[in-house]
Every structure is written in C-alpha cells, then in structure tokens.
C-alpha cells in the first residue's frame, strides 16, 4: 500500500469518525461506518454476511457457474452418483443436481427477497399506526395480529397457498401473509416508546398532521429494529419456503427449488442419500447465514442482549 493511499484512507477514516459531522450525508455515513465496525467485531456475523454475499453471487452468476442446464433431462443418465461429469450426481430424470442447486439459489433468494419487501412495509405500517393512534384502531389491529400469531405459521402458509393454488408467486404471498404479524407487533411496541417522547411531542405541537408524524417521525425511528427483525425472519422464510416446496405447494416443476428437490429425493433416500443431503445443506446454509447476520445486527443495535 502506498503512503498516499494510506493517507487517503486515514483521512476517510477520520472523516467518518469526526465528532461533529458537517452534513447529513456525513452523519449517515458515520453511523453506517460505526455500525460496520461493531458488526465486524463479531466474527460470526461477518461469516453470515460473506456467505450471503456468496450465495447472492452464485444466484447472479448461475448460468456461468452451473455445469449443465438445470432443466435438460437425459433419462439414460438418471440417478448417477457424483462424478467428474456431474459433481453432485443426477436426479430421477437425469438432470444435473449441482446445476439445479445453483439455480435453486435464485428461487430461494427470489422468495426471501420478495417476502422481505412485502412484509417489512406492511408490518411497519400496521404496527406504527396501531401504536401511534391507540384506542379502538389499536385494539382491532392488534386483535387481528394476535389471531394470525396464534396460528402455526407453516400451517397458515399452507392453508393460504392451497387456497390460492400452488405456485411460486402464491407461495410468496402466503409466506408474506403469515409472517407480517411478528413485525407489526414489534413496530407497535417500538412506537409506544417513541410516541410519548419529547421529540414527537414537539413535532405535534408544531402542528404536524398525524400521517406525517407516523410516516416522517415514528416509522424512521422504528426502522432499525424492524430491519433486524426482518433479517432474522428471512431465515424462517427460507425454511417455510422449503417446507412448502417439500409438501409440493411451492415452486412447481421443473423449477429448481431446494425443498421440492428434497421431497423428490426422499424416494431415493436409501440408494442415493446425497440427493437429499445436498438440497438440505443448501437450505441450512442460507437460513444459517441470515440468522448469523441478523443476530449480529441485533447485537450491534442492542449490545446488552
């Protein structure tokens, strides 16, 4: 490393750590940097991040990483053991398992990503509204949340997906429908503590409208814990998705999906155990990475827990 770049790094570092930030942008960057420093101190969380990035990369580069097409059937080559030609063997229709697992990362990340995008805002809106308004709005919204919460989440997703008809998109909707309540509850709890803060009182006295207070002042304050919660629940989303696929209610054939692959492999368990082992490991890896990352985030935001 040259002296020059070292200097620039040092100045970047001091820019990020200066006590009185000069601009909003700098303040944001600072808090990100500080957060990153704290996250980096947790080796498990770093592993989580790295694995997630790795899986994202695999999903993105699937066509280049996969050795075969995930769809091409060669009946004559079915159920082959792992070899140089087929790294993880072939499935019951002679498709390359390694390539299907690589493409399966796309399916899983697609589900997890979309669910996060749907669930975060919905949970946040409902929770913040209920918490801020209180009264009967809160009573009604929280009763609904409770009802959804007392329902086993896999069963709820299962019921929704069978009502909507089995397909990948419906699985996403079903999982989203069954995972917003936890986030709503959290957002409401956060809102309750923010609602009575001096800062919100001040905004209210200045005549801000209720929607404005909720959207501009309450929600941003809830955001960090909601993000943590969403990240953590991504792990269980990946599991639920696999469970639905396992029960034949997720992605439909021939889409490569780990849960569905596991379900077909179950038939060949005794002769070809690796067919079931690999998709299961893939599910475990993704789910664990989300858990490690989310856990690190939680520690970072709330060092006491």
């Amino acid at each position: 490393m040259t002296a020059h770049s070292f200097e620039r790094n040092a100045s970047l570092r001091s820019w990020l750590l200066v006590e009185a930030p000069q601009s909003g942008f700098q303040a944001w960057m600072q808090s990100f940097y500080l957060a990153w420093l704290r996250l980096a101190a947790n080796p498990l969380a770093v592993i989580g991040v790295v694995v997630l990035l790795g899986i994202g990369l695999v999903a993105l580069m699937a066509p280049w990483i996969a050795t075969h097409s995930p769809f091409d059937q060669v009946l004559a080559d079915r159920l082959q053991r792992p070899s140089a030609a087929h790294w993880l063997g072939t499935d019951e229709l002679g498709r390359d398992v390694f390539s299907r697992i690589v493409y399966g990362a796309r399916t899983t990340l697609y589900i997890v990503g979309l669910v996060a995008v749907i669930v975060g805002p919905i949970g946040l809106c409902i929770g913040a509204t209920a918490g801020y308004l209180g009264g009967w709005v809160e009573a009604v919204l929280m009763r609904i949340t409770d009802i959804f919460l007392s329902f086993p989440s896999l069963i709820l997703a299962l019921a929704f997906v069978s009502a909507l008809g089995p397909s990948l998109d419906n699985a996403i909707i079903a999982i989203a429908l069954s995972s917003w309540p936890g986030i709503a509850r959290l957002a409401r709890a956060e809102t309750l503590t923010i609602r009575s803060s001096d800062y919100v009182d001040a905004v209210r006295v200045m005549g801000a409208s209720t929607p404005r207070i909720i959207f501009k002042h309450v929600m941003p304050m809830c955001l960090p814990s909601v993000v943590v919660r969403v990240t953590l629940s991504m792990a269980s989303v990946a599991l639920t998705a696999a469970g639905l696929g396992f029960l034949g209610l997720g992605a439909q054939p021939p889409t490569p999906e780990w849960g569905a692959m596991l379900s077909t492999a179950r038939q060949y368990l005794l002769e070809h155990w690796y067919l079931a082992a690999m998709p299961g490991l893939a599910i475990l890896t993704v789910s664990l990475a989300f858990n490690l990352f989310g856990d690190g985030l939680r520690d970072m935001l709330n060092p006491r827990s």
């Binding site: 498990l44 792990a235 269980s236 599991l239 696999a242 469970g243 396992f246 849960g259 596991l262 179950r266 368990l269 155990w273 079931a276 082992a277 998709p279 299961g280 599910i283 475990l284 789910s287 664990l288 989300f290 858990n291 490690l292 856990d295």
Partner: peptide
C-alpha cells in the same frame, strides 16, 4: 454455543429427521 443454537434455528427439521 451461539453457532450451535443458530444452527438449531436454521436447520430444516424434516431434512435432519430424514438424515
């Protein structure tokens, strides 16, 4: 312990059962 417990949260239990 943390890793062990997070794996417990992350593992698809039906898969672990089969294995």
């Amino acid at each position: 312990v943390r890793l062990l417990s997070l794996i417990g949260h992350s593992v698809p239990i039906f898969w672990l059962g089969l294995m």
